[in-house]
Amino acid sequence: MGEGIIEKDKKLKEGWEGISRFFRANSLWMLMYCTGCCAIELPQAMTSRYDMERLGMGPMATPRQADVLLVTGYLSVKTLRRVIYAYEQMSTPKYLVAFGPCPINGGIYYDAYAVINRLDQYLPVDVYIAGCMPKPEAVMNGFQDLIDGIKNKTADGWKRYRDNYEWYRKNQIESLGELRIKDEFHE
């Protein structure tokens, strides 16, 4: 009898997860954080020609409200610190989409002293969108990939971040020296 209940419980849980995934896939709220230059094509993807809102996507004001963090292009060291803050503030489940070649391997900034080379060392990436800069078609395609990923459970970056937190944190500290933001304001 006990096993039966556990079985039933599992099924219920799975059913609930399935329903949740359906809603999550169809209502993606992006964080309005233009970390780099690829953000310039986002307004185009949002406005009349491509209209992201058809897919249920929209911009949101703060990390707490958002589901998707867009890393639009290169990440300077200074931005990476703030992106980590933003990512950790978002409530789970959360997804991260990286635009352009710069978060993959540095792109044209492979030798720049202020730009990181690989984003997946510091934060888990769910979808990469290629192109410098990605055209709105590519952006929409990437979001479709993310939606598919949510539906078939492959977009699980937030779980990976939770499970391998130590490893990510070690990489972050190695490259950034210190995670705490220190600027004129925080003196």
Binding site: I104, N105, G106, Y110, D111, A112, Y113, A114, V115, I116, N117, R118, Q121, N171, S175
Partner: peptide
């Protein structure tokens, strides 16, 4: 200071940021 000519940007980047 990074814009000085004897500062090697590539070496700094390789040292600090892991490459794919």
């Amino acid at each position: 200071p990074p814009m000085r000519k004897d500062f090697n940007s590539r070496a700094y980047s390789d040292k600090k940021f892991p490459v794919r």
